[in-house]
Amino acid sequence: MSKFKKKKKGMPAVNTASLPDIVFMLLFFFMVTTTMRETELVIDSPRLPSATEVKKLEHKSLVSTIYVGKPKDEKYGTSYNRIQLNDKIATPEDIPAFIYNERSKRAEEEVPYMTTSIKADRESNVGVITDIRLKLRDVNALKISYSASKSSE
């Protein structure tokens, strides 16, 4: 009976219909976890020092960042001690204005919880860090965090 004759079949192709689903799932994961860099660095990306006793910075919206490092543009010199605020090279004298500006963006009751994160290159000098610290103290921005990468022992 020809009706029940077995047809010869090759290997069935693997069904790839769900491949897009898998890829989309991954896609959404990365879309959600991505944080785009807000400020463009005009200094070379600081090589952070490493430390073991680091704490995670919580409440990212309450963190204002000061960068210290070597400027990309030669006209600002080649030392590792230039300060970047927002997206410009600045001097320590500009820090109070920067902090006031950051504060004005947040609600008043959040101001005491604001943290200043100092991202400095490991070859920067303590002198410039001290200048920053004194300026921060002048405007009562007392919570600071020296940005460092976590090293395991």
């Binding site: 704490k55 995670k56 910075l57 007392l142 600071i144």
Partner: peptide
């Protein structure tokens, strides 16, 4: 972001 936190 992580770092050595300090209170002035």
């Amino acid at each position: 972001d992580s770092g050595v936190s300090k209170k002035l």
